[in-house]
Simulated assay, not measured.
Amino acid sequence: MKRILVIISALAFVLIGVFFVKTKQTQVASTEPFTSGYAKVLTNDCYLLKSPDKSSGIFLLEQSYFVKVLEVTDNLYFKVQYLQFEGFVEKSKVSFIEEFPKEPYLVGITFDIYDIGNVCLRNTPETLDNDMNILCTIKASTKDLTYYGKCTGEEAIKGLGNVWYYCAYQDEYGNLNKGYIYSALTRNLSAITSSNESLTLVSVQNFRPVDNLLYLNLSTKNILIILTALPTLFVLYLFVKPSKILNKKD
C-alpha cells in the first residue's frame, strides 16, 4: 500500500509541475509581451557606450544586429552585452524582439595594415602630442586584425577623414590589445552585410531580466519536467519490481 502511495505522489508531482508552468506562463503572457531579452539595433547611429552618456561612445553597433539587454538603467538607457563587451545603449535606438537570434552579433570581420609603415593602436580615437594613449605598435602589412566597429574621432591626416576602427590585435607574445586604429592606415576591410534574421519586434514596458530557461516554449518546459521526473519513476520501478517477483514466487 505504501509503495502505491509513493508512486501516486510522484505522478501527482509531475502533473502539478506541468499545470503550474502552464498557469504561470499564461499569466506572464497576459500581462507583458514575450521577449527573449535581446533587442535589435534600429538605427545607424547607435553607439555602444561606456556609461549612460551619449559622449562616452566606444563604437557604432551595426544596424539590424542585436544586443542582449541586462537591465534597465533609467528612462533613457539599457545596460547591454555585445560580444564580450558590456556597456549601454539608448533605449530609443533599439527594440526588443520575441525570438532568440541565431547570430546576434557581427562577427568574422577583419582588416589589414598598409605596407607603408607601422601604426599605433590607441585607447582613444585621436593622436596626442605626448603619445600617452598608445597601447602598442603594429607592424606594417599585419593582416587579419579583428574589427568590432567604427567611430568618429580626430582627422589624423588632413583630407583622409575622421573614421577610426575599434579592433583587437594579438602580438607575437600572445598579448591581446583592444583599441583604435585610424582607418586611413588600413585596407581590405571585410564586406559588412546586414543581418538577414527577420524577427518579431515587441514593445516591452517593464523589462525584467529572466534566465533563458524561463523563455522556453511551453511544450519544451513540459518535456523538461517529465525528463526530470523520469529518474524518480525509474527508482520507484526498481523499488516495486522486487515485491512483484516475490509475489510470483509465493
Rank of each mutant, 00 (worst) to 15 (best):
L227W: 04
T26Y: 08
G159W: 12
Y105I: 10
E71G: 05
E86C: 01
L201G: 08
L199W: 05
K244Q: 05
D171V: 14
F207Y: 15
R3L: 15
F111M: 14
N175W: 01
F239R: 03
T110C: 02
P33N: 05
N177D: 09
T193L: 14
L5P: 00
Q170L: 00
I245M: 03
K244I: 12
N217V: 10
I109F: 01
Q25P: 04
M132S: 15
L214E: 09
T137M: 05
Y148P: 09
I134L: 10
Y65P: 07
I223Q: 03
E98I: 03
I4C: 13
L5V: 11
T232A: 10
P209L: 05
V67P: 02
N118G: 04
G179M: 09
G57F: 03
N247E: 10
V210A: 15
S183T: 08
T228D: 02
Q205G: 08
Q205A: 11
E126M: 06
P104H: 07
G174R: 06
F96L: 03
F66L: 03
E103G: 05
N133P: 09
T146E: 06
Y148T: 10
I181P: 02
D115G: 12
S95C: 00
R208Q: 11
E172M: 09
N196Y: 00
Q81S: 15
L121F: 12
S9I: 15
S9C: 12
V94C: 06
I16A: 14
I97Q: 00
K150M: 11
K40G: 09
L135S: 04
L213W: 15
